[in-house]
Amino acid sequence: MIPAAFEYHRPQDMAGVLAVLEEHGDDARVMAGGHSLIPMMKLRMADVPHLIDLQDVGGLSDIAVDGASIRIGALVTQADIIDHQALAAAAPILREAALQIADPQVRYMGTVGGNVANGDPGNDMPGLMQCLDATFTLVGTGGERDVPARDFYEAAYMTAREDDEVLTAVTIPLPSGGYAYEKQKRKIGDYATAAAAVQITKSGGTCASAAIAMTNLSDTPIYSDAAGAALVGTTLDDAALKAAVAAMLNDIDPTEDNRGPIAFKKHVAGVILRRAIERAWSRA
């Protein structure tokens, strides 16, 4: 498990990064924590003749929480997310999810930007960000643009990001209500058999809004509008839960792998979503 030879670049600013990207086109790739990219290179499944390390680029490691939104720099690690008190108060689902990603060693290296930019359907943060209706900021030689997380994912490892663009930040509108990130996995450090991100608001006794996204159950994260809609206006009785699960099952398209066959995954997806909704509701 030794990668093919590559050139290592370590620019000091974004201009330097973009210059290398421009020069080498899709022969160049940025690296953040390296905990998805390096394993792929070692398996020789990713061939990266020019590797651009982002670690020395300033201004990408901040977490800012204000009255309306949260802004997370691309190089913020999963461990930073867990440790940040203001963030945990403002959007506790982020910590709940981050604690279920990989193991502490990986979380010290793995970044939010890498996790959402990677495009691996197994990553937990893409679904999480869709649930929270986050926006990704991309910078390229042509300038800066924002893409909603819900529009970002096209297929496995295919996203709206152009090859010469770098993801610099994730912006999340301040969430409210109850939340839950529920994930079934085979062991610590495993990607999800099924995972659900749920954010619910309550008004009187009924559900005012619900955002639901599922992980590792299709070749992209699945934001299930219909599942959320099935809950709105209900008291989250059994019928509403069943309707939400049915709507979600309609949106996912799991494949068989070592975790199990499709029927199992669908069943577990339903159970996991139900539990997530119930937990989120209890916190709403």
């Binding site: 193991d103 085979r186 062991k187 610590i188 450090g189 495993d190 990607y191 070592n258």
Partner: peptide, 28 residues
């Protein structure tokens, strides 16, 4: 509870890395 060397019909090893070959940690 999970550790196996599994093959598909073509004789490909399906569990050739620690991602799929179950090694329990202190957590499990």
């Amino acid at each position: 509870l999970g550790q196996e060397i599994a093959y598909d019909d073509m004789g490909n090893v399906k569990t050739g890395t620690l991602m799929d070959f179950f090694l329990p940690t202190a957590w499990e």
